Simulated assay, not measured.
Amino acid sequence: MKNLKNLNEVNEVISTVPAVLIYFSGENCSVCTALKPKIEEQVKSHLPKIEIYEVKADFYKEIASNFSVFSIPTILVFFDSKEFKREGRNISVLNFIEELRRPYNLFME
Score class of each variant (00 low, 15 high):
P37V: 03
E27Y: 08
K85D: 12
K49Y: 09
K38H: 07
I63F: 03
N66R: 06
L100R: 07
S71A: 14
N28A: 14
A19N: 05
F78H: 00
Y60N: 03
F70P: 05
S25C: 13
F70W: 12
K61Y: 09
E62P: 06
L35Y: 00
E62L: 12
I22M: 08
E40M: 10
G88L: 14
F24S: 00
I75W: 01
V55I: 10
S68M: 13
K36F: 10
L76S: 03
I63Y: 03
Y23N: 06
L35F: 00
L100M: 12
N28K: 15
G88A: 14
D80L: 06
N66K: 09
N66E: 10
P48D: 04
I39H: 02
D58T: 08
Y53V: 08
C32W: 02
E51L: 14
Y60M: 02
F67S: 06
L21P: 04
A57P: 02
A34R: 10
K85A: 15
Q42N: 09
E51R: 15
V43S: 07
V69R: 01
S25P: 06
E41G: 06
V93P: 11
K36H: 11
D58V: 07
A19G: 08
F84K: 08
Y60K: 01
K38C: 04
V93L: 13
K61E: 15
E27D: 09
I75V: 10
I72K: 00
Y53I: 09
N66V: 03
F79P: 07
P73L: 00
V31I: 13
L21Q: 06
G88R: 13
S68H: 14
C29T: 04
I50V: 05
F24W: 03
I75S: 05
S30V: 12
L100A: 07
E99G: 01
L76T: 00
K61H: 10
V77I: 11
G88D: 13
A64S: 15
D58Y: 05
F67P: 05
V77L: 06
S92P: 13
I97H: 06
F70C: 07
V93G: 11
A34F: 08
R89N: 11
F70T: 12
F24D: 02
I52Y: 09
F59V: 06
G88S: 15
E51N: 15
I39K: 03
F79W: 08
K44N: 15
F79M: 09
V31T: 14
F78D: 01
L94R: 11
Q42H: 02
N28V: 12
S65E: 15
V31K: 12
I97F: 03
N95K: 15
H46V: 10
K82H: 08
G88P: 08
H46I: 06
E41K: 12
